[in-house]
Write a protein that binds this DNA or RNA. Structure first.
Lengths: 193, 193, 193, 193
DNA sequence: AATGAATGAGGATTCATTCAT
DNA sequence: AATGAATGAATCCTCATTCAT
């Protein structure tokens, strides 16, 4: 129980204030426990961080994996819009995990740079593949204009990244949803037949 | 002299390792000076950080302002592509300032959250306006399909944000340039007549 | 245990060398502990000082309060001499607390000026009242010449203050006791019928 | 010029905030000069302090010496009251010097304990002698009751010490003057024939 | 006489971590 | 599983002092 509450508090705080900006005492206090109690569950600050990192990464990977599911009866367009929607959902439902992931993907603490970069490669590849598949599907459906696939993949991934930043930068729900739709419309116009 | 070297070292280190992750001693060492020497020029760590922040922000603002210049004889398409190119140039020429700006735009240290958010609003507005103007120009030229302006502005800004992340995430020059072009092509396809 | 030893060491050192002249490391060393251990018990140097101040003040207040006790069967003269004796006893038995109190009553550290002045008002008033009562009692007994009370109160309090300084200024027991008696004799001659 | 302004600022600040509580930079700032300028005139903080100490001590000694003067045509009573008056005048006219002297007489910084104690002995003796003489004069005049001299000396010096503390403790002029008169009256009643 | 730059020493404070309980 | 006490290392910062100018 405490173990999990620690993980949650750590995820939130590490995500919000960074690794160096978060003291173990803050995490402990949030959970209503004294600092040394943390050591009953985690070997060190790094260990706690890594555990949290793995968990956040798992959430993220699961999210990425599930993007592939349930799109059997959907058009390519629906699936691609669905990716953005689900990304949005993920941000709203797991704000801590997603902020954490975004932060350490772009600004990993020095001692974890390599580990983290490697960890992201995996989901990156999976996502790239999925998007590629969808684009091909779109072409087969005749919805997407026949052309090289890579540029469209690059574009779509860029759309996703842009929306990530915007989500954490602009906090308003309405603004974000408007942007999401606008951005997707333009993208789709750029690729459709 | 030392004052400036301190600022440069600070910008690089704060940008790379974060506010809390950077010790004044590191900054001093980089400049070949002992820690207390910093206090001859800056009142505190926060003061040094803020000075650096203002400087980085100024670079960024200048960059944003100069986007508006020298586009008299250019088509809207050229101007818009030019923005992405110049953003890329800015990243390459001022990697420290730009990494710094990106980091603290998305992850400001707690004690500066408000100040920083406010500082960004300014350039944000200016950029939004410029992009709007270009899109209208594009429509007048007949290059961009007649439609609502806002969605296109949102899309273009999203393209820029996406490319920002990607620049710092993928370090390879070639990959970045490929993406830049792909992304712009798709965007342009999505908006052109 | 450590908490108390810290308080005692702090009282002695703050009293002897002043707030700014006393390093936490000295206090810690005296107790056989490293400096950061202090922070397990006190929030800051100021906190430790204030705690010690309150304690010293309490000792002093208790001393003042107990002056009023046990004087039922005593003549005014005995009671007044008793005050000086007990003051002397207090100095000998709680040399640290009393030196501390004297020092910060006259030379409070800047950040505490107000707090401290206020704290002294209380005991001052109580003492003034007690002395007033005794003088009236003396007049009723016929031992003290009928006259205005205030001048006698002022005089007696002045006698006490003078003896305070002298106690800490001249360290010799004999000298002090001689002075005490001389001073009281003269005072009494000045007031008696 | 600067040399003197430094001395004055130092006297005031050392007197007010103590040796350790006063930074050279404060003294310099008060004079409108940068810290290292102090070293053009004084070898070190200790040197500055000692110079100031000597000066304050000189003022005090001069004051003590002058107490002996101009009392040819005065009665003992007038002379003794005059001492208290002049002490009061000294406090008002040289508040910095007198506060300084009082502070370091009772609470000398550790490194000066001996030097300072020695320095005070001199004026103490002189004062004791003067008071003794006056008392004898008073007896010869028939104004003071025949008795042992020492007790009266002790009493008068105690009166002076008490008034010293009170001067710096109670800041009100009226209160102080009232006390001065009350205290002297009582003293005189205690000693007169 | 005065300053700007720099430093060594030291001071308060925080923090991750350990250990006995 | 949890805590109170304690610590070593490090951090920010101050201060007296020096030195070249």
């Amino acid at each position: 129980m405490t173990r999990n509450k620690l993980k949650e508090a750590a995820m939130r705080l590490f995500g919000e204030k960074g690794y160096d900006g978060t003291a173990l005492s803050e995490i402990a206090k949030e959970v209503g426990v004294k600092t040394p109690a943390i050591y009953a569950f985690y070997e060190s600050k790094e260990d706690l961080f890594m555990t949290v990192f793995r968990e956040a990464m798992d959430s993220y990977n699961t999210f990425i994996q599930e993007l592939s599911k349930g799109r059997e009866k959907l058009s390519a367009r629906e699936s691609m819009y669905g990716i953005l929607s689900r990304q949005y959902e993920f941000y709203r439902e797991c704000p801590d995990a997603s902020k954490f992931v975004l932060r350490y993907m772009v600004f990993p603490p020095v001692f974890l740079k390599e580990t983290i970069e490697e960890a992201f490669l995996h989901s990156d590849e999976r996502l790239t593949k999925l998007v590629g598949t969808l684009i091909v599907q779109g072409m087969e459906e005749g919805a997407i204009r026949d052309q090289k696939v890579q540029p469209l993949v690059d574009s779509f991934l860029n759309v996703m990244d842009g929306l990530s930043i915007q989500y954490f930068y602009y906090t308003s729900k309405e603004v974000y949803e408007r942007k999401l739709n606008h951005v997707f419309e333009t993208f789709w116009n750029g690729v459709r037949s």
